[in-house]
Amino acid sequence: MPNPSAKKISVSLNINGEMRQVEIRPIDTLLYVLRHHLSLTGAKPGCLNGDCGACSVMVNDNVYKSCIMLAIESVGSAITTVEGLKDSPIQNAFVKHFAFQCGYCTPGFIMNCQALLLKHPHPTYEVVKEWLSSNICRCTCYQEIEEAIFSVVEGRVGGTSE
């Protein structure tokens, strides 16, 4: 039987530009700490298994699924959650292109798009596909999300699935 009296440790996390001190179990995932200790509920639990992407956040500008990452692994890095984005072009593009319905997968998709655009300001369709196939959206048909991301790529009007 596991030892129930989990030993907690105190760590500092740099989240959305703020240093936050939290008492965690070393095995706590980043998702768990964001939601349960810091009340940052933008990242969503969808599978807790690294499959759906609803919990995606950025760590040092790379996108990660926070359910398969320990909070302790992000100590010393800059964590950005959807709450850390303010009026970003991709958020506005999602609104304009109706790239969500229920909205549950949306923070994860937006963080993935944000990281993608940081690394590839002018991505090809193939790159967008490779990145965005990491997330599941069950409401839209993905065409809306495709239109949203390409609308913020400079010098491109709309995407194409062909």
Partner: peptide, 23 residues
């Protein structure tokens, strides 16, 4: 007309609250 959804900005900012978000 294709007006903006009433829940749009809550949803793209992560402020939209679903049941599990309440604790």
């Amino acid at each position: 007309k294709g007006i903006t959804r009433k829940d749009a900005f809550e949803k793209v900012t992560g402020q939209a609250k679903y049941t599990a978000d309440f604790e």
